[in-house]
């Protein structure tokens, strides 16, 4: 059962729609560069310190490929993402809102340099930041217009069928379900970031390196998650650490279902997600255990064999959390 309404008409062209503003921006940058070329110093100031003074320089020949790469690489990334996870509205809006400031930064560097005697004379004012933000709003707004009327699945539509039959538990029976879910993608991403972080610390100092190491560690931690269902309720832990532990007691659970979820559309991404009305641990798109809570919210954990987990949870809920499981001490 698939809960996410997929775009239908013209949906194959939608990922390309994400790439178009990046191509247009590249054309704008190329034009501005070619027009201003006779008036550009060499090298060109391309990086500015907090005070607006130029502190980074690039040769004239290298600026063109660098500028184009800054626009085309993110554009390509967004197009690939759009193919992988569907050209959903939030993704298109992100792509459109990003292209404005990117294009602005590139064009601004060329125009600020144009006419300067040497690159050292080039100044940048603080007005560039609000201007870039304003442009993000403008291109984001264009994205809103482009995607107007795209169907967003209503949250109600995602709620699974009510009263799925639970696993029938006899009196005097106890049960336990567990599954360790691994994500190779998150593991590889985490490892890559760790290696990259460790590599750049000697080159750039601790700041950016530590950020990469931290992100890599987080990715690595979320690459393995164990879900457990027993008389206490649903427990989710990381595979590599005993703590932190998420436990949802049986008495907070109304019912459980197995559903297919889309990490991006339904949960807004990967890892531990908290959205309006729905939270959960997401390793991938696909089979997930979705638990309706007594407070009207949903808890989601992506795991294989979710149907068994849901049936057992429902069975346990039906039996009532009031009954203590029979305790065996005779062994």
């Amino acid at each position: 059962m698939n809960v996410t309404a997929r775009p239908t008409r013209g949906s194959r062209l939608r990922p390309l729609l994400v790439g178009i503003p990046y191509l247009l921006s590249s054309a704008v940058f190329l034009t501005v560069f070619l027009v201003s070329r006779p008036r550009l110093p060499d090298p060109i100031a391309t990086h500015f310190g907090g005070s607006g003074h130029a502190d980074g320089f690039t040769s004239q020949g290298a600026l063109l490929p660098m500028g184009l790469a800054m626009l085309l690489l993110p554009g390509a990334l967004f197009v690939v993402l759009a193919y992988v996870i569907d050209a959903v509205r939030p993704l298109v809006l992100t792509a459109y809102a990003t292209v404005g400031p990117l294009c602005y930064a590139n064009v601004r560097v060329v125009m600020d340099n144009a006419g300067a005697e040497t690159a050292r004379d080039v100044r940048l004012t603080l007005w560039e930041v609000p201007a870039a933000l304003a442009l993000a709003a403008v291109t984001g707004g264009i994205g809103l217009l482009v995607t107007r009327g795209w169907q967003q699945p209503a949250p109600e539509a995602r709620i699974g069928p009510k009263n799925r039959p639970g696993l029938l538990l006899h009196p005097g029976e106890t049960a336990f379900w567990t599954h360790a879910q691994r994500s190779r993608g998150l593991g590889i991403a985490g490892l890559t970031l760790l290696v990259a972080g460790a590599t750049i610390i000697p080159l750039t100092g601790f700041g950016p390196g530590v950020v990469l190491l931290g992100t890599g560690l987080l990715f690595g931690l979320f690459s393995g998650v164990r879900s457990t269902v027993d008389r206490h309720g649903l427990t989710v832990t990381m595979l590599w650490l005993p703590w932190p532990r998420l436990r949802i007691p049986l008495k907070r659970i109304v019912e459980a279902n197995a559903r297919d979820i889309n990490a991006f559309c339904d949960m807004g991404g990967w890892g531990y997600r908290i959205n309006k009305g729905r939270s959960g641990v997401v390793l991938r798109s696909g089979e997930a255990l979705v638990v309706q809570l007594a407070n009207g919210k949903e808890f989601v954990v992506t795991t294989d064999d979710a149907a068994t987990a849901a049936a057992l949870l429902n069975g346990l809920v039906e039996r009532g959390s009031g009954h203590a499981a029979p305790t065996d001490r005779r062994g």
């Binding site: 336990f176 206490h232 064999d305 062994g331």
Partner: peptide, 24 residues
Amino acid sequence: SVRPGDRLPAARTLADSLGVNIHT
């Protein structure tokens, strides 16, 4: 549903979940 190399739940955890003695 359990693969080679997978770790089984710790005896203490399983005993607590199932309401049995750890020696069981």
